[in-house]
Design a protein around this nucleic acid. Structure first.
Lengths: 338, 338
DNA sequence: CCTGGCACTCAAAGGTCACGAGTGCCAAAG
DNA sequence: CTTTGGCACTCGTGACCTTTGAGTGCCAGG
C-alpha cells in the first residue's frame, strides 16, 4: 500500500508530464506543487513508485514518466471527472441542436468530440438490436421481385432486395405487409423472430414459399445489421502526438481504418459506466501507446451504442472523460427527443 | 519550345525522383537512362529546364527536383497511362464482385483504390441528380405524420419525415402514392418537379395542403440530396509522404476531414476524362503539396460521381492514373449490372 | 553543339566537448 | 523510521568544428 504522499507525488508527476510532455524530475516537482518536503524525499518516493512499476525513466539520469500502470492508478483513484465549463456546455448544445437527422447527429457529434478533446473521436451508430421496428414496407419491383424496407425507431432505414420463388400478386403482398406490420411494429428486433414464426401458415399454399423467403430476408436484415457502422473524425489531431511521428501515428491510422478493430474496441467497454483503456490494455497492437475513453449512450435508460476518443496515453484524463461523458449525455437527450 | 532531348531529360528526372525521393543529379541520370550524351550536356539541358521553371534545386549544389510545372508537362506530354497487370485486374474484380449493396460497393472501392495506389482514396457516392426514381413510398406514422421514402435506381434509399397540416386518411395516402409513382417512377430527378406540379389540384380541397407539403418535401429531398456523401480511406498511406512529417501531413488530414473541400476538389475535375491537379493547382491551401487524380464513373454512359486519390506531388502518375481509371470502369460495370 | 576538366559550394555525417538536469547513496538530523 | 543536505556520477542535449562527396557552373577545346 502506498502512502498518501506517494500518491500525491504520482498525481503530480502525471499532471506535470501531461502538461509539459517531458520527463519530470524531483526538483521541478517540489517547486510546482507545494508538497511540503524536499527534493530528496521526493526522490525516495519516486524510487519506490518506480520499483512498484508506476513510473519509469526513459534513460538513467532523466526524469520519470508514468507507466500504463501509473496512469491506471491515476485514473482509478487520483483523478475525478472534470466537469465542463459553462461555455463548453453551451457550445455542445449549439452544435448538436442544429442536427436534422440521424446521420447529421452522428456527424456533428464526432466533429464536436474531436474539437472538444483535441483528439480522435469515434462514434458508433445507434445499434439496431435494441431498437424497435417502426414500419416494414414491401414494394413490388417485378413479378417475382420485392423490395423490403425496414424503418427503425432510431430513424434508420434499411432496404433489401428479395427474389421470390414464385410470382407474387399485389394483394398477397398487401396482405403480408399488413399482417407483418400489425405483428412487429413497436416490437424489439430480438422479439421479431418469434412473432412471425407462424406467418407462412396463414397464407395459401402457393404463396408460402414467397412469404418464407421474405421473412428470411427480414430476419437476416435484423441480425446482419447489428454490424454497426461508425464514424471517426479529428485524425488531424494525431499530429500533436509527439515528435517521433511516423512510428507512432502509422499503426494508429491503420487501426482506425479497420472498423472491425474499432468496433471490438468500443464493444469491450462496459455497457453503462465510462471505460478507460490505457496503453497495453488495448488488445490491438497498433493502439498500444494510446488510450481509449469510451462510454455508452442511448435515447432512454439503455445504452444503444458507444462513443469515445482515442488519444495518446499521455492525455488529460479528467478533461477528456468529462467531455466524453457530457457529449454522450447530450446526444442521448437529442435521440430521446426525436 | 524544348528540344526532344530536353524533354527526355525532364522525363528521366521525374521518373528518378519519383523512384528515389531524392534530388537527382546529372551523373546519375546519364548512368541510369541511356541518353547517349555526357553529364556535361545534361547539365546544360538542366540549366535550361530550370530557367523555364520545370525543375528546381532545393539548394545550390544539390540535384534537381521537378516543380509543379514540371510535373504538369510530364503528365500532359511525356507520360501515358500505365495499364494494369493481369494480376491487378483480377484483384480488382475479386475485390469488387463480393459487394452486396451500394454501401458495400463504395466501401470496397475506397479500400481497393487505397491499396492499389498506396495513397489516400476518395470515393463520392453516386449522385442523385442524374439518377432516376425507382419508387416513392408514403407511410402513415401518426394521423398527421407521414414518412416519405425515396428509392433510386442506384439502390439508394432516402427517408424524410413529413408533418402534415391536417390529418390524412389511409385512402388518400394510398391514392397519392399511386398517382405519384405512376408519374415519377423511371423519370429523372430533374424532371420530377414539372411532373408533379399539378398534382394537388387532383385532390379534394381538404387534402391539398397535405399533398403540397408532401410534394415540397419530396422535391427538397431530390435537391438537397445532391449534396453528396463521400468516403475516404488509406490515410495511413500519408505516413509514406516524407520525413518532414507533421508539417506536411497535418493540413492534408484537415482538408480530408472537410467534406466540402473534397467535394469541391472532385467537382472541379472534368466530367468525362481523367483530371490531374498538381500541387498549387489545387485551390485548397492544405493540399498545395499534393496532387489529386480524379475521374468520373457511372453506371451508363454518363458519369454520376467521381472518385480519385490524393497523394504527394511526387507520385507515380502513370501507375496511379491507370489504377484510378481501371477502378472507375469496374465500378461503373458493377453499378450497371445491379 | 558537345565534351572533359576544374574550381567551387554546401548539406549531411561524424566527432569532440562542456553543460546541466537528474539520479542514487550516505551520513546526520529529527 | 523518516527526512534532509551533500556529493559524486550518468548521460542525453546542443554547440561547434571538420570532413566528405555529390553536384554545380563555367570554360576551353574538339
Amino acid at each position: 500500500m502506498l502512502s498518501e504522499r506517494r500518491l500525491k507525488v504520482l498525481r503530480a508527476i502525471v499532471q506535470d508530464y501531461v502538461g509539459t510532455e517531458e520527463p519530470v524530475g524531483s526538483k521541478a516537482l517540489t517547486e510546482r506543487h507545494h508538497l511540503g518536503v524536499s527534493p530528496a524525499t521526493v526522490r525516495n518516493d519516486m524510487a519506490v513508485l518506480e520499483e512498484e512499476g508506476f513510473i519509469a525513466q526513459p534513460h538513467t539520469s532523466a526524469g520519470r514518466i508514468p507507466t500504463d500502470k501509473g496512469y491506471r492508478l491515476f485514473v482509478d483513484r487520483l483523478a475525478g471527472v472534470k466537469p465542463l465549463s459553462a461555455a463548453e456546455r453551451r457550445a455542445i448544445q449549439n452544435f448538436l441542436d442544429g442536427a436534422v437527422d440521424l446521420d447529421d447527429v452522428v456527424a456533428r457529434t464526432v466533429r464536436l468530440l474531436a474539437q472538444l478533446t483535441r483528439q480522435v473521436a469515434v462514434v458508433q451508430y445507434p445499434s439496431l438490436t435494441r431498437s424497435t421496428v417502426r414500419h416494414v414496407e414491401l414494394l413490388p419491383l417485378a413479378p417475382a421481385r420485392v423490395m423490403l424496407v425496414l424503418i427503425t425507431d432510431t430513424g434508420r432505414v434499411e432496404q433489401r432486395m428479395v427474389d421470390c420463388p414464385t410470382p407474387v400478386g399485389e394483394t398477397t403482398l398487401a396482405d403480408l405487409r399488413a399482417r407483418l406490420n400489425s405483428r412487429v411494429v413497436g416490437r424489439r428486433f430480438t422479439d421479431v423472430p418469434q412473432l412471425v414464426q407462424d406467418l407462412p401458415e396463414v397464407f395459401e399454399q402457393d404463396d408460402r414459399g414467397t412469404v418464407s423467403t421474405v421473412l428470411a430476408v427480414l430476419l437476416e436484415t435484423l441480425v446482419e445489421d447489428t454490424e454497426e457502422r461508425l464514424v471517426i473524425g479529428g485524425t488531424a489531431n494525431l499530429t500533436r502526438f509527439g515528435h517521433d511521428f511516423p512510428l507512432t501515428i502509422r499503426p494508429v491510422l491503420e487501426a482506425l481504418e479497420e472498423q472491425v478493430v474499432l468496433l471490438k474496441l468500443l464493444g469491450e467497454a462496459s455497457d453503462s459506466g465510462m471505460t478507460v483503456r490505457i496503453g497495453h490494455e488495448n488488445a490491438h497492437e497498433g493502439l498500444n501507446s494510446t488510450s481509449v475513453v469510451a462510454v455508452g449512450y442511448g435515447s432512454g435508460d439503455e445504452a444503444v451504442a458507444k462513443l469515445g476518443v482515442v488519444g495518446p496515453t499521455r492525455m488529460d484524463y479528467p478533461g477528456t472523460m468529462g467531455a466524453v461523458r457530457a457529449v454522450a449525455r447530450y446526444v442521448g437527450q437529442i435521440l430521446a427527443e426525436s
